[in-house]
Measured scan of single mutants.
Amino acid sequence: VTTYKLVINGKTLKGETTTKAVDAETAEKAFKQYANDNGVDGVWTYDDATKTFTVTEMV
């Protein structure tokens, strides 16, 4: 189990959260659900070296 981080660069919501998951795919599903629940829709990137997902909403 690995800890993954999500950085949110939203128009109205900004911040970070973490989740523990067995792999990046599982973490991504959890983060996308979290973003969807919070009304964040944007471009996703993932950095495997730092285990960090970033979602950026276009203005």
Rank of each mutant, 00 (worst) to 15 (best):
V1W: 11
A35K: 01
D41A: 07
K5D: 02
V1G: 08
T17Y: 14
L6I: 03
F31C: 02
E28R: 11
V59T: 09
T50N: 11
Y4R: 00
K51H: 10
A35F: 03
G15A: 14
D48Y: 13
F53A: 01
K20D: 14
Q33Y: 11
V22P: 15
T50L: 12
T12K: 03
A49H: 12
Q33M: 07
K32N: 06
T26G: 11
A21L: 03
V43G: 09
E25R: 11
T19Q: 09
D41S: 08
D47N: 05
Y46V: 01
K5C: 04
G10V: 15
T26F: 09
T45L: 09
T3M: 08
K29S: 13
N36E: 15
K29G: 07
V40M: 06
K14A: 11
K51M: 08
I8V: 14
K29V: 09
N38E: 09
T56P: 01
T52V: 08
D23Y: 07
G42L: 02
D41P: 04
N36S: 13
K29M: 13
T54F: 04
G42M: 02
T2C: 05
E28C: 04
L13E: 13
V22G: 11
Y34I: 12
T52F: 02
M58C: 03
G10W: 13
A24H: 11
V40C: 04
T54R: 05
T45G: 08
K20A: 10
I8C: 04
V55C: 04
V55Y: 02
L6H: 00
A27K: 00
V55L: 08
A35T: 07
F53M: 02
E16R: 03
V7R: 08
Y4C: 01
T18R: 06
E28G: 10
W44S: 01
V22Y: 04
Y46S: 01
Q33I: 12
K32F: 08
E57Y: 05
T56D: 08
K20C: 05
D41M: 07
K51P: 00
D23R: 04
K29N: 11
A30R: 06
A30V: 10
A21R: 03
E57S: 03
K20N: 13
E28T: 10
K51F: 09
K11D: 12
E28A: 11
V55D: 00
N9E: 09
W44A: 01
Y4L: 00
D37S: 09
A30M: 15
V55W: 02
N38T: 12
K51R: 15
G42Q: 02
Y34H: 08
G10C: 06
A21Q: 09
T19Y: 14
F31T: 00
T2F: 07
T54P: 00
G42D: 01
N38V: 12
V40P: 02
K32T: 06
Y34G: 01
T50P: 02
Q33L: 12
T19F: 08
V7W: 06
N9R: 10
G42C: 02
I8P: 01
Q33E: 10
K5F: 05
T19E: 10
T12R: 02
E16Y: 06
T26N: 10
W44H: 01
A49R: 08
G10A: 13
V40L: 09
Y46P: 00
E25M: 09
L13T: 04
T45N: 10
W44R: 00
G15D: 14
A21S: 09
T56R: 07
K5N: 07
E16V: 03
A49F: 13
G15I: 15
Q33P: 02
A35H: 02
K11F: 15
A21W: 03
T52A: 04
E28Q: 11
T50V: 09
L13P: 02
D23N: 10
N36T: 10
V55R: 00
L13W: 09
E25S: 14
E25W: 08
Y4T: 00
W44P: 00
Y46M: 02
T18G: 04
Y34V: 08
T18M: 10
D23T: 08
L6E: 00
Y46W: 04
T2D: 12
T50A: 14
D41L: 14
W44T: 01
T56W: 10
G42I: 02
Y34P: 00
V40N: 02
T56V: 15
Y46E: 00
T3L: 12
A21H: 04
G15H: 15
G39K: 12
A49Q: 11
V7L: 07
G39E: 12
A27F: 01
N36F: 07
K20R: 11
N36V: 10
F53K: 00
V43T: 12
T18I: 10
V7H: 05
T54I: 12
T52G: 02
T12Y: 14
V59S: 12
K14Q: 13
L13D: 08
K29C: 04
T52I: 14
A21T: 06
N38R: 14
M58T: 13
A49L: 14
D48G: 10
T54D: 03
K14D: 07
T12Q: 15
A35D: 01
E16P: 02
V59R: 03
A24L: 11
T50R: 07
T2S: 10
K51E: 06
A21D: 03
V40Y: 05
T12W: 08
G42W: 04
T12P: 07
V7I: 08
T56K: 06
Y4K: 00
L13C: 07
E57W: 06
T17E: 06
T12G: 13
T3A: 11
G39F: 14
N9D: 15
A27M: 01
K11S: 14
V7C: 04
D47S: 07
G15M: 14
G15K: 14
K51S: 05
D37M: 08
N38L: 10
D37A: 08
L6P: 00
T26W: 08
E25Y: 15
G15L: 14
T2M: 14
A24I: 13
K11N: 13
K5E: 03
K11Q: 14
G39H: 12
E28Y: 14
K32R: 14
D37C: 04
Q33R: 09
K51C: 05
T3Q: 12
V7Q: 06
L13K: 04
V22N: 10
T19V: 12
G42T: 01
G39A: 09
I8Y: 12
T26C: 05
V59Q: 13
T19H: 10
V43I: 09
K29Y: 13
V22C: 04
V43L: 11
T45M: 15
T12D: 14
K11V: 11
V1K: 10
I8M: 12
L6D: 00
T18S: 15
T3E: 09
L6F: 07
G15S: 09
I8R: 01
E57R: 02
V40F: 09
A30D: 11
A35C: 05
W44E: 00
T50I: 11
G10P: 03
L13I: 15
G42Y: 02
G15R: 15
D41R: 10
T45Q: 12
V22F: 12
T17H: 15
K14Y: 07
V1F: 09
T2A: 11
V7F: 10
G15E: 15
F53D: 00
E25L: 12
V55E: 00
V59D: 12
T56G: 03
T45W: 09
T45A: 12
K51Y: 12
E57T: 03
D48V: 12
D47P: 00
D37G: 06
F31Y: 02
T18Y: 14
K51I: 03
T26K: 08
T50W: 05
K14T: 11
K32A: 08
K11L: 12
D37N: 11
D47A: 05
V7K: 10
D41V: 13
E16W: 06
E16T: 06
T45E: 10
Y4S: 00
D23E: 05
F53C: 01
D23Q: 05
A35Y: 03
T50M: 10
V40G: 02
Q33G: 09
N36P: 02
A24Q: 12
E16I: 03
E16C: 04
Y46D: 00
A49V: 12
A27Y: 00
T26M: 12
T54K: 06
Y46T: 01
V55K: 01
T18P: 02
T17P: 03
D23V: 04
A21G: 03
K11C: 05
T50H: 11
T12F: 15
L6Y: 01
T52C: 04
Q33H: 12
A30P: 02
N36G: 09
F53V: 01
V22K: 14
D23M: 06
M58E: 10
